[in-house]
Amino acid sequence: MSSVLIVVEHNKQKLKMATLKALTFARQAAKKLNTQLNLLVIGHEVEAVAKQLQPYGANTIYLVEDPAYKNYTAETWGHVTAEVAKQCDAVLIGINTGTTGRDLMPRVAAKLNAGMVTDLIDFDGDLFVREMWAGNARAFIEVTTPITVASIQGTAFGVAEPGGTESSITRLEIPVPKTKTRFLEIRETKSDRPDPTEARVVVSGGRGMKGPENFKLIEDLTDLFNGAVGASRAAVDSGWISNDLQVGQTGKTVAPDLYIAAGISGAIQHLAGMKNSKVIVAINKDEEAPIFQVSDYGLVADLFKVVPELTEALRKEI
């Protein structure tokens, strides 16, 4: 029987929450296409990740382990994904979007002679929906190949709850391919805060922050909610804050319950990454800033005065 296959993104110990959003999409898609639903965990000593997924009702969880698969590369993981997709007759192969998904999936598409949909937000069983032009156009897409490959935009789907029959784990041996790239190391951003794509509250700072030392104001506010820190491109380009906190067209797409933008003017490219947040608060001293056109509550003020004031006021409320 044909299947929908989801590649599981994980940090070697735990699956990423975005995988559970991709799973929500995959359940819907498997129903619409009347197929099985399978998951694929790739890595080295990652059985624990596969086990975490057992309560979610997939037909089979494929587990492919080898020391060579420990650190992701597009060549190795792409090879494994394509081989497993063939074995389980996958007609739709997906992963949550992010730098891994976007790096990996075109390679899989090329191997399987499949059309690819980047960052899909919907699928009606026939056409896929995705956004283009920094979120300003919604495109309805037909894929003419028998197999479709996709990255899945997590903001469009809820986190899947456990449900269905417990999944079995099937180990597969996929011989390691010869590669022309080698992983050397990762300089990880050290932070106790959640990722902006996973937090209920995101507080972002932009050019108006004026310097890295002032992001303390943003951190104090977001820490009230155990929230995440985000940033506009201007703040990242200035080297004030880590690149992986950039929210926008070419960075991360977020949709938290509450998004607070401080000192961010609201360029089209930034709005693309946060316009689907449930509630948006904008603080900017320029009343003409475009961010106010999308914010539910706008406050024209000096952020250095009102952000600490807001932090103090909210501390009493929560």
Partner: peptide, 19 residues
């Protein structure tokens, strides 16, 4: 292989309220 059948405006946010 991948064809855009049609395009639409995404839902527009109603913002602009000031406090």
């Amino acid at each position: 292989k991948v064809i855009v059948k049609r395009m639409a405006e995404p839902a527009q946010r109603k913002g602009g309220r000031m406090v």
